[in-house]
Design a protein around this nucleic acid. Structure first.
Length: 563
DNA sequence: ACTTCATGGCACC
DNA sequence: TGGTGCCCCTGAAG
């Protein structure tokens, strides 16, 4: 392309005519100006005789001599007078764009009210008093499960062990073993399944022949916790034995192979209804499939549950009421279904969102609340599925933007919190912590919208979109890029294991930066044995801190810590 | 300290 | 309704 090479020959200069011509600067992508001197102007004589496609542009150039003005240009809006981008570890927004956090115009992320005080972003619940029969059922059967007093939240805020670059692609999902407390499963973008015993740290395996691409969701078999079900973008649902790594396919939606993108089916949402003995999976065309767990055969026909042609990214069965199913997808809806009447258009409720819904979960104890994560940077909470669901009870502004290169963020309940108010979710936007731009993991009280804690580690500079709280222990697992981290509460880990016994395993090839950060001194280390306790001894971790430092105060020194 | 690339949602026509 | 081009905080590799 001649136009391309021509453009490349002066990438750092914006050509501006004396008059305020729009076209001159707007179509040049590489037009960032880094030269300071604004007063320096140069008159350039246009060259004649060149044969090029842009005839009009040439003609325009012939008319007037053009000047090269060396001004600073914002890389976002291409206008002068300001610049967006990192200034040290602080990101400066382009003032011409709506706020990156709350998406409202008129201010930037730095001055966004939601950044300073998260509770500001909460839309309070309208008073509801329906007094219908469902309310009666709720009050009688479910309310007693929810304690009146909110317990103190225990926050796993310190990295106790980690596997760095465990996967060869970014982590997409995590699952704790339901009975063996130290086993963490992780899926990745390549379709591989990791089994890690973080209690023994170095005991880890990666099964690579289960799926061909993205492992989107997985769930343990409730009847045999030695096996997991998984759904993948390769269009198959599989069942894998964790001991042997042997898996068999339950369903293949692309039996004829690749016939082009318009027909290639991918499986996203997955859950298990143990009461009914079915595995539920959903595809990228809006359909739900059910597989009988005993016969491993499909039951019934696929059902269109979201807009035709749209991705169904999440399925969740109600933990208490087996007839209730929650789905969510790219058609900007989360939908509540009665399993006894699964037909297109027969959903009990359609919960509208402004953008794609990354996840929708029932609350883990009573199953009566709904929490969704949407790509409009808002968490939404419905306090009771037995009331009217027309509008969410609360909307909490939180930075978890969509980025095609990241696993979509999903806010996850704390299954151990009987009050069903603590939620964990990774934060997209970075904060300047001691000179480093870090992306914390947030704990939010969804009854108030307040930030309970933000946890980060100076060694984790990547975003952590995948987080899961342990079903029994005070443990958080997070997936950040290709690495996994296990967090435990500070007090506990200090008593149990001193900081210098922190176990970090570095897998695969490590670049200089990673080596420096985690103190590795070899290129490859897949056995993981040699790294035990090494990093704290000689090599200086990132930021020069003698050990991992976790900051637990809230945003901007404003303490919103609960209790 | 650069560039490149992978590749999802969505606005816009 | 389908194609196309754009995109602000990525992360890894070269």
């Amino acid at each position: 392309m001649p136009a391309q090479t021509r453009r490349m020959s002066f990438p750092k200069v914006v050509i501006e005519r004396d008059t305020d011509s729009e076209e001159s600067s707007s179509d040049d992508e590489g037009g960032d100006i880094v030269v300071e001197e604004e007063e320096e102007e140069e008159v350039v004589e246009p060259k004649y005789g060149e044969v090029e496609e842009e005839e009009e542009e040439k003609l325009a150039m012939k008319k007037k001599p053009i000047t090269l003005s060396l001004k600073k240009v914002c890389k976002v809006c291409k206008k002068t007078g300001h610049e967006a981008g990192f200034k040290g570890a602080t990101y400066i927004d382009c003032p011409m764009k709506p706020c990156f956090l709350c998406k409202m115009p008129g201010h930037t992320t730095m001055t966004c009210p939601h950044r300073v005080a998260t509770e500001f972003g909460v839309v309070p619940a309208p008073r509801r008093n329906t007094h219908n029969s469902l309310d009666y059922v709720f009050e009688r059967q479910l309310r007693p499960r929810i304690p009146k007093m909110k317990p103190e939240f225990i926050i796993p805020d310190q990295v106790s062990c980690a596997v760095i670059r465990y996967h060869s692609r970014r982590v997409t999902c995590l699952e704790f073993h339901p009975t063996n407390n130290n086993i963490l499963l992780s899926g990745d973008k390549k379709g591989q399944l990791g089994v890690w015993d973080f209690g023994k740290v170095h005991e880890k395996t990666v099964y690579s022949n289960i799926h061909g691409c993205i492992l989107n969701n997985m769930k343990f078999n409730p009847r045999n916790d030695g096996t997991v079900y998984s759904g993948s973008s390769d269009g198959t649902a599989g069942c894998t034995d964790l001991e042997t790594g042997l898996s068999f396919s339950l369903m293949n939606l692309n039996p004829n192979g690749w016939q082009g993108p318009s027909s290639w089916k991918m499986l996203y949402g997955l859950d298990i209804n143990s009461e009914k003995g079915v595995v539920l999976v959903a595809d990228n065309f809006g359909y739900l499939y059910m597989i009988d767990m005993r016969s491993n055969n499909r039951t019934g026909e696929p059902i269109l549950i979201h807009k035709k042609g749209s991705k169904v990214v999440g399925l969740h069965c109600n933990p208490i009421q087996p007839d209730l199913l929650l789905s969510c997808g790219n058609d900007h809806f989360a939908r509540l279904w009665d399993m006894r009447r699964m037909e297109t258009g027969s959903s009990l409720y359609d919960l509208a969102h402004k953008r794609v819904v990354n996840s929708a979960y029932f609350s883990p104890v009573s199953g009566s609340k709904i929490l969704t994560t949407a790509q409009d940077n808002r968490l939404r909470v419905w306090d009771s599925i037995f009331g009217t669901l027309d509008t969410p009870s609360r909307e909490i502004v939180h930075s978890h933007d969509f980025n095609r290169h990241l696993t979509p963020f999903r806010a996850e309940w704390d299954p151990k919190d009987p009050s069903e108010s603590l939620v964990v979710v990774g934060r997209y936007i970075s904060e300047n912590y001691n000179g480093a731009a870090l992306h914390p993991i947030d704990f939010i009280d969804i009854t108030t919208g307040q930030l309970v804690a933000e946890i980060m580690d100076p060694n984790i500079t990547t975003i952590s979109p995948v987080n899961k709280l342990h079903p029994h222990d005070d443990v958080l697992a997070s997936g950040s890029s290709r690495s996994l981290f296990i967090w435990t509460p500070k007090e506990k880990s200090e008593v149990q294991k001193p900081a210098d016994e922190k176990k970090i395993i570095l897998c695969g090839k490590a670049d200089k930066k990673t080596k420096k950060k985690f103190g590795d001194d070899s290129d490859s280390d897949d056995d993981g044995f040699s790294k035990k306790g090494k990093q704290s001894k000689s090599k200086k971790p990132y930021l020069g801190s003698p050990q991992l430092v976790i900051k637990q105060e809230s945003y901007k020194s404003k303490s919103s810590k609960k209790h």
